[in-house]
Design a protein around this nucleic acid. Sequence first.
DNA 1: AGATATTTGTTCGTATGTATC
DNA 2: GGATACATACGAACAAATATC
Lengths: 77, 77
Amino acid sequence: MLFKFRPDRPRWVQVAEVIRDRIEAGDYGPGQPIPSEPAMVREFGIARTTARKATAWLREEGLIYTVPSLGSFVHGG
Amino acid sequence: MLFKFRPDRPRWVQVAEVIRDRIEAGDYGPGQPIPSEPAMVREFGIARTTARKATAWLREEGLIYTVPSLGSFVHGG
DNA sequence: AGATATTTGTTCGTATGTATC
DNA sequence: GGATACATACGAACAAATATC
């Protein structure tokens, strides 16, 4: 079942908020990976460019860090 | 420092002129790439659609050619 | 050593909607 | 109405690094 987007805000914002909430809930612990871009594409039914915008926002917020070719990980590990 | 646009002409024209001048000055040699669309977005502080209009104009002028997924390059290499 | 799969980085192509002049 | 300009969002392709088999 794909994520239900609201029409009032951009999709990349809503995806970023879901991931952020999961991080704060402890679903992804410190040093552990968040869903990869292809995983977000599958789970939310979005384009990769949209997944990348969500990831970039989480990175700018300081919640995650990204290692090329490996993935993005929660800070604090 | 972002480019200072004049209000009298379209932005895409002014961007195209800057790139054209650089090509004629030899900043980008034959066969070498001009700034990508994302690079123009960063350098000039414009939208991608505006960068694309500038690139399209340079292409129609015969100054460059574009290879999808790779970039745009100065003619004559 | 070699081949394959995964992931991020980057690019262009296209379309839609909104706003402004 | 038309041209300009922005943001969003889809898709496709290529590249490079990493990990695994």
